[in-house]
């Protein structure tokens, strides 16, 4: 993800934060990595800032959220009365087997689909009351989406994919280029500006997607199985990237997943089964080292 230089032999190494010794001379790289990490944290803070005026404790709330899909004559309930509160700045994972309704919940929170009944609030705004323009604005400015299948626009380069939401937001061309470059640098693809999605690997495409999700400094990043199409290692990189963003900038990350690697980085894990919340695990319960969430 980041390029660092070995202090002993000068070897250029691509690192994701997992390997801590130089593959060439075996020198300890932890100090260099920490410095690089710190620098990136600082940069991320300036790149992703939550500019919302208000500070409600909960950024997303759902009340009695219900979704029923009608397939022919059969009604399939996908969500049954889901009540969920997501704190600002939280890293929340929604876990569950396929068909449990986690993607449906993702769609409701993201304003991509309408619930059959119940309400969904984003920053205390009832999404059902928004008109098409406001909903588009919300999707453009407040929410960043990451998908399992990356969903980059195939005919556009990495740079163009990232700047598309900025065009919608009305940014000037110069601003767009600067920010696009900054974002691509941040996800470690600074040298792939003009590559088309098919010229990039799965992990690289997903990183472009992460950068695109951050284009307009959203308050929430919604990820639907972001690691579903990636191998173990690449998946870990994406998870780490999301976690870093979450910590450095305070952006709320909500991720639907069944990837167990997500548990390590999540503040809370919501287990969902048959359209209902089965239980909610707190980070404190999973990992005793971390001193809970503070506000509980």
């Amino acid at each position: 993800m980041a390029k660092i230089e070995c202090p002993e032999c000068g070897e250029q190494i691509e690192t994701t934060g997992i390997v801590t010794v130089c593959p060439k001379c075996g020198a300890d790289l932890r100090e260099v990595m920490e410095a690089v990490g710190h620098e990136r944290d600082e940069r991320m803070k300036t790149i992703v800032r939550d500019d919302s005026v208000t500070t409600h404790e909960f950024i997303v709330r759902t009340r009695d959220l219900k979704k029923i899909y009608v397939m022919g004559e059969i009604e399939v309930p996908a969500l049954r009365d889901v009540d969920l509160d997501v704190r600002r700045g939280e890293y929340l994972s929604i876990m569950g087997p396929s068909g449990s309704g986690k993607s449906t919940l993702f769609n409701m929170i993201g304003g991509l689909d309408k619930p059959t009944a119940g309400r969904c609030f984003i920053e205390e705004v009832d999404m059902a009351q928004l008109d098409a323009f406001e909903l588009a604005w919300l999707r453009c400015r407040k929410i960043g989406y990451i998908f399992q299948t990356f969903n980059l626009i195939p005919v556009m380069t990495a740079m163009e994919n990232i700047t598309l939401p900025m065009i919608f937001a009305g940014m000037s061309t110069d601003e767009m280029m600067d920010r696009g470059r900054e974002l691509l640098d941040m996800v470690g693809l600074g040298d792939r500006l003009d590559h088309k999605p098919y010229e990039l690997s799965g992990g690289q495409q997903q990183r472009v997607a992460v950068a695109r999700a951050l284009a307009n400094s959203p308050a929430i990043v919604l990820a639907d199985e972001p690691t579903g199409n990636l191998d173990l290692h690449t998946g870990k990189e994406i998870i780490d990237l999301l976690k870093e963003l979450n910590q450095a900038s305070g952006v709320t990350v909500i991720s639907a997943t069944h990837d167990l690697k997500m548990i390590d980085v999540s503040d809370r894990v919501v287990h969902i089964r048959d359209g209902e919340i089965e239980r909610i695990e707190h980070r404190a319960d999973i990992d005793l080292e971390v001193g809970g969430m503070g506000e509980e």
């Binding site: 909960f58 709330r61 323009f133 406001e134």
Partner: peptide, 26 residues
């Protein structure tokens, strides 16, 4: 469960505070 917050959210005031805007351009 933050009852007060919920009441606030359902009120008309909620919309103005977050300044949901409409300018989306192409």
């Amino acid at each position: 469960l933050d009852v007060e917050g919920l009441a606030k959210a359902t009120g008309a005031g909620g919309k103005e505070k977050i300044k949901i805007q409409r300018q989306i351009t192409l």
